[in-house]
Design a protein around this nucleic acid. Structure first.
Lengths: 338, 338
DNA sequence: GTCAAAAACGTTTGCGTAAACGTTTTGTTA
DNA sequence: TAACAAAACGTTTACGCAAACGTTTTTGAC
């Protein structure tokens, strides 16, 4: 039989209220009584029932994280840092994996917001902000991470996509590259849009011409990195920018296969996975853009808990800065520059 | 205000029981009544309260997964396949990351088993089976994944560690390698023990001598792959076996840096991450061992749900087989041989 | 010794749901 | 048209806990 709070109360010779208050430190209990209660608790092996507790209080001590792709190192690392932060604060983390599928995201938002979690962290794969917003119950704590929407109706934590791309284009142009290709992610995502527009603006500003044939969108589903690269190499690119870790590693592999030497036959700029030995291996042949995933995760955890505690808190937006690490430069550049 | 089942009942002109039965298909309800109920539900925007429901039924429709390292691709992929299976069955997944820390594992087992989840999937980092067992409440559904204990008191799903290592040692010995080094993971883990003992037995069986100087244990915390490799190269190894994805990629990087050519200066056998383009790049220079992570995850999900439904079910154990892919062999080998 | 305030604890209720148990309605057969 | 089964729904309770509300006991100031 399950041990309940009243079993404990009976054994300790006190009321259930006293047991509850003892456990939760919600009102004064004399230390003798506390001792009796704890004694009874350990003797009976009592553990408060989490369901009953959250039923009563309305708090689940759980945050949901809706992620587009768990096996992507970027999100895996982020999950790790979110979980680290939340568990320190006594919260749990529920993961939902949408696989960049809008329906899956919809289903998961519905399920999780229906009393399963206190708040939701979402890296949305949705195209339409309106659709997205219609799914979120009024007043439900939500923080957008990595990806955001134009209509700023939710708190968000993102990474600056503009600056590193802009700078790398300028650097490539400065080195004499004229045909700079870029591989973006899913076109509907805010991250992709920002990256592409940074690219376009930089290309213009550097006196080159924007050529749509040099812009390709890759993803693991339909349009692989190899497909994009086939196109880009047809255009005789002298530089390529790969805007996420998956595309980047596939690009390196592909260029290897084609027998092209990095930094010699072709310049490469990569969004690089945090702490990945694969990319470390190429750090002296490619320009790396390292996103501050761990900071992002911790900040996201912090923000969602703030909103859970005060759902009426003002909308918070923060854009973290990526580290831009061109190869072949003095170390001071590589490390201090963010 | 929150919409409850009785609001729906009132609006539909039926009892709460009928609403409940309609939602849950737990007894016959005429289709006209059903229509009225669904009508009221959508009009009010009613969603059943998950806390109240799980409080009432005792079921949380949630499984916990205690993982030693989320950002390790092996576990990230496994989380993905577990989540895929569970979400198909209407279950959610809570992740706890122990970072190979026994105390963190203990805390998480306690928290999660106290009414937060219906069952627990655990890739334990614990040394002592007794300690581990003492943490699991009697009758609580648990399935061990990837790592197991000698005392077979829990269902488990593992990957055969013996066979691929044994075969690769034999292959290396057959090629004429005499000094075969191996880098294991944390010595306390069952996986490490199995891998090392497979290595030792194969070395003996192939007529070589077991030399403890050729056995090193690496991990991301204290003893890096580089440390292990420094030792092994001092011993003039002509082959190295890296027994997990992290060690393997670090090893490749390290050997590169040292200017050693794979398959020429030194033979390399790697436990390789599923679908990793990094390892694909080396598939013609290293012998690969690919663990069936996705199968493992799905099977783990299946088993834990079986136990949740019937906690008295007999203990189930399964060992999945890794794909062993020596390089330089006809394609038929590479794909069909598992 | 009186009295008020503070300290220390008890009684009771209600959260939203599922299901046990019970009732009414409908249809069918003799 | 009684008799009864089956169909279709309603009433009520209990789950375990936290907290609102209430009571008793202790303390110490006069």
């Amino acid at each position: 039989m399950k041990v309940t709070i009243s079993d404990v109360a009976k054994m300790a010779g006190v009321s259930t209220a006293t047991v509850s208050h003892t456990i939760n430190n919600t009102r004064y209990v004399s230390s003798e009584t506390k001792d009796k209660v704890y004694q009874a608790i350990s003797e009976l092996g009592y553990t408060p029932d989490a369901s009953a507790r959250s039923f009563r209080t309305g708090k689940k001590k759980t945050i949901g994280f809706i992620v587009p792709d768990i096996s992507n190192k970027f999100f895996a690392t982020m999950i790790e840092s979110v979980e680290t932060y939340l568990s320190q604060q006594g919260y749990h983390l529920i993961i939902a994996n949408t696989k960049e599928n809008e329906e899956r995201e919809e289903v998961n938002i519905r399920l999780l917001s229906a009393g399963l979690v206190d708040g939701l962290l979402i890296a949305s794969t949705m195209d339409s902000a309106e659709k997205f917003e219609s799914l979120i119950p009024a007043g439900f704590p939500v923080v957008l991470v990595d990806r955001t929407f134009d209509s700023k109706n939710f708190s968000s934590l993102c990474v600056s996509n503009f600056q590193p791309i802009y700078r790398s284009v300028c650097r490539l142009a400065g080195k004499g590259d004229h045909k700079i290709g870029i591989i973006g992610g899913l076109p509907r995502l805010s991250t992709t849009k920002e990256r592409i527009s940074a690219y376009q603006q930089a290309v213009t500003d550097c006196g080159l011409t924007v050529d749509d044939n040099l812009i390709r969108y890759g993803n693991s589903l339909e349009n692989s990195a190899a497909d994009c690269l086939d196109d880009l190499l047809d255009q005789h690119c002298d530089a390529i920018i790969a805007t996420n870790g998956l595309m980047a590693s596939d690009t390196i592999m592909y260029l290897h296969k084609k027998g092209l030497q990095l930094a010699k036959d072709i310049d490469l700029v990569c969004f690089v996975d945090f702490n990945s030995s694969f990319f470390q291996m190429y750090s002296n042949q490619i320009d790396s853009i390292v996103q501050p995933v761990e900071e992002l995760g911790a900040a996201a955890g912090e923000q969602i808990l703030k909103r859970v505690e005060d759902p009426e808190a003002p909308i918070f937006e923060k854009v973290l800065t990526s580290a831009y690490r061109p190869y072949n430069l003095p170390n001071s550049w590589n490390h201090s520059d963010r």
